[in-house]
């Protein structure tokens, strides 16, 4: 059981690293938001799921699932709010506004 947890955590770490690389490489705010969504959706999912499995199936498992559910409900809202603020204040994607 703990090996399954560790495997899941390693997969999650891979996605977290990919998200960070994307944060560094991608050209503008809108594209970087995609990198953040990789991190949030997949990286956090696999790491937290791995930790939950590693903990075993007791109340701690359920609590970690609650945190996961919160991330899944709230982080898209945050990403959307940020990107909408960028859009409304006049930024447009595609040209790579790396001043």
């Amino acid at each position: 059981m703990s090996w399954l947890g560790i495997a899941l955590i390693v997969i999650g770490l891979f996605f977290l690293v990919v998200g960070s690389i994307g944060m560094l490489r991608l050209p503008d705010v809108f594209s970087r938001a995609h990198a953040l969504s990789v991190t949030d959706s997949l990286g956090a999912l696999f790491v937290l799921l791995g930790l939950a499995v590693y903990e075993g199936f007791n109340t701690n498992f359920l609590r970690i699932i609650v945190v996961l559910g919160l991330i899944y409900l709230l982080n898209p809202v945050i990403a959307h709010a940020t990107v909408r603020a960028a859009y409304r204040s006049g930024l447009r994607p595609g040209k790579g506004d790396d001043q």
């Binding site: 969504s37 997949l42 809202v77 990403a79 959307h80 909408r84």
Partner: peptide
């Protein structure tokens, strides 16, 4: 719909109005 689109990597909802979404796709 907006939440699912934003949660899926590669697409992100920028504006929401009844009947129309502005979506940024990578």
């Amino acid at each position: 719909l907006g939440n699912s689109i934003t949660l899926t990597p590669g697409t992100i909802t920028v504006e929401v109005a009844p009947g129309e979404l502005v979506v940024h796709a990578i």
